[in-house]
Design a protein around this nucleic acid. Structure first.
Lengths: 120, 120
DNA sequence: TTGTTATATGAATATATGTTCATATGTTCT
DNA sequence: AGAACATATGAACATATATTCATATAACAA
């Protein structure tokens, strides 16, 4: 348990007690940062397409580029981002690299995002 | 149902059939864009903190700024972003504006994101 | 009216990010 | 070895974005 420092004496505007409570319940900087980083990765249409496509089947980079109608380099760069975030993994087979999702969590998040948009 | 145009004749690399299938199941540009936009909004630590705070209680702008230890202007700008995306709503009471979440969907997404980070 | 307070917003700045181009790496085939 | 191919990556560029500063708007108080 961390101590609550409620140095809200300088507040002239409002409600020191509520501020104190909310501060106590606020997520940590690190937590907020990590959560934001995860969402940020899902916050790009290309990556959404890549993840949604890989949620259906394993694909090699060049097939993925063909599916998305994008350059190989762009796809490869995005796969690197997704790899660093452990959202996708790959296996090598000769010259080719076969990519798939790393775990189910992301599928769930993505599905919920899609459903959120659906409910507009 | 839309027609599947599988003009993958120029592919020299691989697997035209798989490409064709994946293309058919690919989310639309608009869908990908909308989903990405939703996630992009959650992809900033300040906004994560704002949403998490508002998921617990209604707050006015200046209290929110005090809780987050940020300038009023920065908070107001972010609230604007969240308002445009219909993630938060507000009611006016005199000079003050009281903000809260617009619906539960975002709470759920956020909670799932937090849990995803927790499971690392 | 004048002054004070709460919030909103435009401009400016610094930083981050997505794509392209060129090239490197590594594998397979001849 | 050399050629062709699949993938990865660094540099460059254009665009997006988060914060700050200054100021506008609007409500209330004196």
């Amino acid at each position: 348990m961390k101590e609550l420092e409620c140095d809200v004496c300088e507040e002239r505007c409002e409600h020191p007690q509520v501020i104190c409570l909310a501060k106590a319940e606020l997520v940590s900087d690190e937590m907020a940062q990590q959560v934001a980083e995860t969402f940020k990765i899902l916050g790009d249409p290309t990556r959404v397409k890549i993840l949604q496509t890989l949620s259906q089947r394993e694909l090699c980079v060049c097939d993925l580029a063909a599916v998305l109608n994008m350059g190989q380099s762009a796809v490869s760069h995005q796969l690197r981002v997704l790899r660093s975030a452990r959202l996708v993994k790959y296996r090598r087979e000769g010259k080719m690299a076969w990519y798939c999702l790393d775990d189910g969590h992301i599928s769930n998040l993505l599905a919920q995002g899609l459903s959120h948009v659906g409910h507009e």
